[in-house]
Design a protein around this nucleic acid. Sequence first.
DNA 1: TTTCAATCGAACAATATGTTCAGTAACATA
DNA 2: TATGTTACTGAACATATTGTTCGATTGAAA
Lengths: 182, 182
Amino acid sequence: MDRRQRKTREAIFTAFIKLLSVKDFSKITVREIIDGADVGRATFYSHFETKDFLLKELCEELFCHIFDAMNAENNHKHIFECDAPDSVFLHLFLHLQKNDNNILELLSSQNNELFLQYFKINLRELVKSQLPLFESRKSNILPEEFWINHIIYTFVETVKWWINNNMKESPETITEYFFLAV
Amino acid sequence: MDRRQRKTREAIFTAFIKLLSVKDFSKITVREIIDGADVGRATFYSHFETKDFLLKELCEELFCHIFDAMNAENNHKHIFECDAPDSVFLHLFLHLQKNDNNILELLSSQNNELFLQYFKINLRELVKSQLPLFESRKSNILPEEFWINHIIYTFVETVKWWINNNMKESPETITEYFFLAV
DNA sequence: TTTCAATCGAACAATATGTTCAGTAACATA
DNA sequence: TATGTTACTGAACATATTGTTCGATTGAAA
């Protein structure tokens, strides 16, 4: 990839994230983005079809980043056979705490519905692979799809609560809360 | 209120709800609303400052309606002293099943974040007044705000799952799922 | 150095927003 | 029924946003 292309793409993403942390996605205009990124209008549209595609690609990039990093880091630990206290979820919380790419601001901002959708899509695979961790009386009574949804949403809401609470709790404590709540 | 005003307001709300069930809030234009409601542009703006205010007022009207109706209906039953199986939550599910004002379409549509916010605000009061219903080991360990949030979100997600599942389950069954999950 | 692609900037049509105003119709009241 | 008031119409308006186009310019890479 051309260095200029990389720089432009990065500048647009950075300006966009900055704007997202301040105002709603729907209120952000292309003009604001290109002014922030200091690129031409035509350049923006040569990179992204529309504002929606920009968000889509940002989400994919961020989540690929965090989930890939997590997998790479934990492959040698056979993480998928670990117990709850050392689960992939703890590692996710640890990653979030590092706050790469300002992902936290995006997760906790007001109009983040589309962003959270990508988070949930990525989480679904993870949760499915970890279902045995959540085995209990209620997991046998509730319909499986209901149960999986419940775990996903509980995780997302736990993250949001943690961030809005200034992340005062340690990742270990939050992991405990998550497993207690679910 | 003038009959003309009422009719106009109603026509705008109706057209708006119809559009909301079909496409995202952010993609809906004022032109589409006034064409659907068959009113003039100036009329729309004399009723609502902006599209956002229209949504705000719609939410308030719908939730006032559903929560007021529930309270009126249940005052004589001393609902606030009932057990889980006959709780206010079951009554909420029953109300939702009736689908007054097409509230269901709004709750399950894609871009409903703002709409859900109002739902959650109304739920918070309800949940707080019903906290004893959820007494358990974990409710003593988890921070109260975390716990209340968890109950609210679990309720909302249960409703969404139910709707997206075509409401095949009875309100009684869904209430059971809700209390099991939480 | 040369070739090629990315960017610029300016202009463009098309569409959306929110305001204004004079004219018309529906309302409440007496 | 007559009267004053209020809501609605429709059209025009300035302004802003979107997405496209094109020739000129700059930077990367060979």
